[in-house]
Design a binder for these strands. Sequence first.
DNA 1: TGACAATATGCACATACTTGCATATAGTGC
DNA 2: GCACTATATGCAAGTATGTGCATATTGTCA
Lengths: 105, 105
Amino acid sequence: MNYQQAKVRADILKALAHPVRILIVNALSGGDRCVCELAPLVDIDQSGLSRHLAILKRVGVVTERRDGNKVIHHLQTPCILRAFECAVEVLRSDIERKNLHLKAI
Amino acid sequence: MNYQQAKVRADILKALAHPVRILIVNALSGGDRCVCELAPLVDIDQSGLSRHLAILKRVGVVTERRDGNKVIHHLQTPCILRAFECAVEVLRSDIERKNLHLKAI
DNA sequence: TGACAATATGCACATACTTGCATATAGTGC
DNA sequence: GCACTATATGCAAGTATGTGCATATTGTCA
């Protein structure tokens, strides 16, 4: 793998690597939502939420369509939920390993 | 999912979301390496490489053991390679979708 | 057209991340 | 102990990211 290939991967992961954006993706995995439905789930200013959504849209993880004066957001690539599962696996593995060290004391 | 749960996931993904760290993980997926073996693969200062490794170790993705005066690094949770594949899927899906739009013109 | 709801953007500030340089620490072999 | 190799850390500067506030834009409905 060369630097450019690593960079495009990093850009996608970076777009996912924020608690608010993870909450957004998680919510969208349960179905399409407009901004006003997402707002109560994330403790953040409306403009901030709009910006986080823009980041997810820029990398193509989320897409949008208009419905009246609402913009409906859609999780375009649900495969990224696997990246979250993978993060959980890392956590679990790390805790297990530390427990082992603890027992060894 | 609550904010705290999203945050721990974000911290793991953030640790992966850098081109140099992706190159490191990619190299380690082929077997354990010391810093001196990784250095030529990533175009960065030795101290910078050391810092990137520290970030990966902090979240438990990479572990280390000493061998003489070398520190050997080990990819503790190879499952994160799936996160990279997932990033590639996002890219591919995005390109396909844009191609469709192109054809529609 | 005007009032209103939903969403996006400009700006300014704070915080976090990355990097190189110099220097410190840890281990090896003489 | 000394010279040497491998790796880590303090510091300072540059860059990027996240946030709230105010304001702009887009669409609806009367």
